[in-house]
């Protein structure tokens, strides 16, 4: 099975890279851009065969390694 993990900085943590990207987009003429948050994206291939198990395993992985819970939050998706 394949799982996807989206990691972003918590809303309380300033994201200077996202800010620069937002400024660049505005400079390109996208005046409607209000904010950008930059993050990380992981695809994890697993031998698990059911969605619940896969989701539990990958959530644990995100918590232990893929994200740093001090500064980042994450969202796990398991593809059926």
């Amino acid at each position: 099975m394949r799982a996807r993990v989206y990691v972003t900085l918590k809303p309380s943590v300033f994201d200077p890279q996202g800010r620069v990207v937002a400024d660049a987009l505005v400079t390109l003429g996208y005046q409607d851009v209000q904010d950008v948050r930059q993050g990380k994206f992981f695809e994890v291939e697993l031998s698990a065969t059911d969605v619940a198990t896969a989701k539990a395993r990958v959530t644990e992985m995100a918590d232990k390694l893929l994200a740093n819970p001090v500064i980042e939050s994450y969202r796990v998706e398991v593809l059926p």
Partner: peptide, 17 residues
Amino acid sequence: LLEAGMLPGAMVRNDRI
């Protein structure tokens, strides 16, 4: 030390990049 949990907190990108 921060990532190993031996000290509290974390580092993020410098505020002026």
